[in-house]
């Protein structure tokens, strides 16, 4: 089979490009440590969230030194808790599940983004920087008022967080 020399050159360059792309993604995983949402959490009964320890009362709680867990329920057409308040410069793990249909959980303009599938729990961990406010949008069509489904993520200073927590806000 005859292949022109230039075409062979291009074939080699193409393979190099592909390896470079795969290498970049691998670097992202091992260097900065970007992890994928995966099957780390067991399946859950979407119809019985009110009997679940974590999701009957969606909330943020401290689970370790400077480590926090946010239990979030997405449902037509909102997120609970709203707003989600977490302390600055901490490690926050979001556990997000759906009470009804498939939703999305996207902290707009950031890399925090996951599908939310009924019967499954999406687990994503982020490290917060300084105080900031972000919008949360549902980025998967979920029904007639999908466009109204939004929430808020507030990253507040450690002291403000403790003040809110002790203020009985619960969130």
């Amino acid at each position: 089979m005859h292949i022109h020399a230039y075409e062979k050159l291009w074939l080699a360059a193409s393979v190099l490009l592909i390896l470079f792309l795969l290498g970049s993604v691998t670097y992202g995983a091992v260097g900065p440590g970007v992890a994928m949402v995966s099957d780390s959490e067991p399946a859950i009964d979407a119809g019985a969230l009110d009997e679940d320890d974590r999701f009957s009362e969606p909330r943020v709680e401290q689970v370790g030194e400077n480590e926090y867990a946010a239990y979030v329920v997405a449902r037509q057409f909102g997120f609970q808790p709203d707003p989600i308040v977490v302390p600055a410069n901490s490690t926050v793990t979001f556990y997000v599940t759906s009470a009804d249909v498939i939703h999305g959980f996207e902290v707009a303009g950031t890399n925090a983004n996951t599908m939310v599938v009924p019967g499954e729990v999406s687990e994503i961990t982020v490290e917060t920087d300084g105080p900031a406010e972000y919008g949360i949008v549902c980025n998967e069509y979920c029904g007639a008022a999908h466009h109204a489904m939004e929430g808020k993520l507030e990253v507040v200073s450690q002291s403000a967080y403790e003040e809110r927590a002790s203020g009985g806000d619960g969130e």
């Binding site: 970049s24 793990t93 920087d129």
Partner: peptide, 19 residues
């Protein structure tokens, strides 16, 4: 373009998923 979008835009954003 890839170097820009991956190494600068993507890895430079807030709330990188690390776990």
């Amino acid at each position: 373009s890839w170097v820009y979008i991956y190494y600068i835009e993507f890895l430079g954003r807030d709330l990188v998923i690390v776990g």
